[in-house]
Amino acid sequence: MFDLDFSVIPANSSLLWEGMKMTFLLTGLAIVGGIVLGTFLALLRIAKVPVLAQIAAAYVNFFRSLPLILVIFWLFFLVPLILGRPVGAFSSVLVAFIMFEAAYYSEIIRAGINSVRPGQLAAARAIGLTYGQSMRYIVLPQAFRAMTPILLTQAIILFQDTSLVYVVGLRDFLVSAEIVANRDQKLVEMFLFVAVVYFTFCFVASMGVRFLQKRLAT
């Protein structure tokens, strides 16, 4: 039973690599999209326009109260119904991730913005920068610098969460490995391999977070 044969991995390397690329692509795009939308939501929440702040708060609370997998299902099954045409697994999943992650990113970014001394905004406005310029050149760069470790932590969680795309049949790394595992009857080898890969990436990234935290603390 424990007669393991890992030759199945190199034999299927191109299929597995395709899956890995999908996982990376999803993670990367979801991080970028999530941070962009999250920054926008965070700026709305701190804006002195109560209606906008409330809309943004409602959005954040709504998505934080739902399981991710449900959001993935919704966008996959409901959006085609609303639009009247199929949208494709990749785009629906990507939109789901961005919308879901943005809720978390916006909270991180809001905390980051609040950690910048109010005097910085006052000084920026005092030299004549507009509110938007002050945010862009003065407040956000400082906020993101302070937030880098926690943003990276969130990215690690996202990297792991992308494996949920198996529910809509998208071939990410995990799904590719599962296909190989079932077809070649190498369940133990493949799932061990998948675990090692996920662990390695996340562990290295976590070390990176700790390194950044130490560097920023000094």
Binding site: Q120, A123, A126, I127
Partner: peptide, 20 residues
């Protein structure tokens, strides 16, 4: 107001230089 502020210099108690 932004235009006006640019014509009035201001110095703060805590300097408020941009640290980055």
């Amino acid at each position: 107001l932004d235009r006006m502020r640019s014509k009035i210099g201001m110095v703060f108690q805590n300097f408020e230089l941009f640290p980055h």
